[in-house]
């Protein structure tokens, strides 16, 4: 078997990519569901109902979309510059930490000042956390995949120390969690009796801004140029290192915002389950969106739907909720494979 490049990918073929991959993912997941002794048809129905079928389900899915947009954008812009930031998870917790430090009584500000302050400091910390690995990359050619990935564990262990130690809330009946943020630091919910909060607007605005930034500004132009072709960029006098460093600050900053928004909008206090791997899912989101900032919004919603829907389904059917993780992974693989098949054709021999 070998792959031959197609001369041109027709529109029909391109349209088949999402449909074909959805069908393939569905098929593979059905096998697992049947294996778990449940009916795939019922499972699929429960999945839809549990993710978008009711007002509450939809609000949950949207709430889950918010951090995924932030981490998805963080991965998208970094990958666009060929900076492989795998550390969004750590940067997210970094942002949440600084917001906890400032937002739990350290300072007293009105809400309209408090939230911008928390978001910008969170972004700053996230950016700085990525700056280290990036400088090691540009100065010493240290592989950033390794450094950013390992930094995640360092930061999460630091959060562990904080919530079990100095920041532990004495009122939490022994649970490892920090004190709750002050009222001014809370992102209000926008739908009564749900957890959907104002963070959604912050996330959507970020996506829109990032899209405009990449498309209309010279900085965005430089980032794309460097990512596509660093040799040509150097030839025309773009400083590749400074562009990569700038990109790192933006990428880390967006991941930091995810932490602030989860802390102030959803949880209210810092715990170790603030993020069930949003940093890593962000990579999936960005890849599904082909690194397009507006596409990230759509794919973040899709990934959120998968996890909320599959969670709800597995609870109703009493099957393992790892099906949700498998479904996410399978859909990503399916999309990547179909994107490949749209560009190449298989030749058997």
């Amino acid at each position: 078997m070998r792959l031959e490049p197609r001369e041109q990918s027709s529109m029909v073929l391109k349209a088949m990519v999402p449909l074909g991959s959805a069908a393939a993912a569905l098929l593979v997941c059905s096998v697992l569901i049947v294996w778990a002794d449940a009916s795939p048809v019922e499972a699929f129905f429960l999945f839809i109902k549990g993710s978008v079928g009711t007002r509450f389900a939809l609000s949950e899915t949207l709430a889950r979309t918010i951090p995924l947009i932030f981490t998805g954008l963080a991965a998208a812009i970094a990958f666009k510059a060929k900076l492989w930031n795998i550390g969004a998870e750590g940067q997210l917790y970094g942002g949440a930490c600084i917001a906890t430090w400032l937002g739990t009584g350290m300072i007293d500000l009105p809400g309209w000042l408090m939230l911008p302050l928390l978001f910008s400091t969170g972004a700053l910390v996230g950016g700085l956390l990525l700056l280290g690995p990036t400088l090691l990359k540009t100065w010493l050619k240290v592989d950033e995949v390794v450094t950013t990935l390992l930094l995640n564990f360092i930061i999460i262990l630091l959060v562990n120390y904080l919530v079990f130690g100095p920041w532990k809330d004495p009122m939490a009946m022994g649970w490892p969690q920090a004190k709750g943020v002050v009222d001014a630091a809370v992102l209000p919910t926008i739908l009564a009796k749900t957890r959907l909060h104002m963070g959604i607007f912050w996330a959507l605005a970020s996506a829109l801004l990032l899209w405009a930034f990449m498309r209309f500004t010279t900085w965005g132009y430089q980032i794309r140029a460097v990512g596509f072709n660093p040799v040509a960029s150097r030839f025309v006098g773009i400083s590749v290192n400074s562009v990569v460093i700038r990109t790192a600050l933006i990428s880390g900053g967006l991941a930091g915002c995810a932490g602030v928004s989860e802390l102030c909008g959803l949880k209210g206090y810092l715990t170790l389950d603030l993020s069930p791997g949003f940093g890593y899912s962000g990579i999936v989101v960005a890849m599904l969106a082909a690194l397009h900032p507006l596409g990230v919004v759509v794919s973040a919603f899709f990934v959120a739907m998968l996890s909320i829907g599959a969670d709800s389904m597995s609870r109703s059917l009493n099957i393992s909720n790892f099906i949700a993780d498998v479904a996410t992974a399978v859909s990503l693989l399916a999309v990547l494979v179909s994107m490949l098949l749209a560009r190449y054709k298989i030749r058997w021999r």
């Binding site: 040509a232 960029s233 030839f235």
Partner: peptide
């Protein structure tokens, strides 16, 4: 490899 950025369009390549 050096003169153009293959993944960018004509307009973008002309202002490099």
């Amino acid at each position: 490899g050096t003169g153009l950025i293959g993944d960018m369009n004509v307009q973008e390549n002309l202002i490099l």
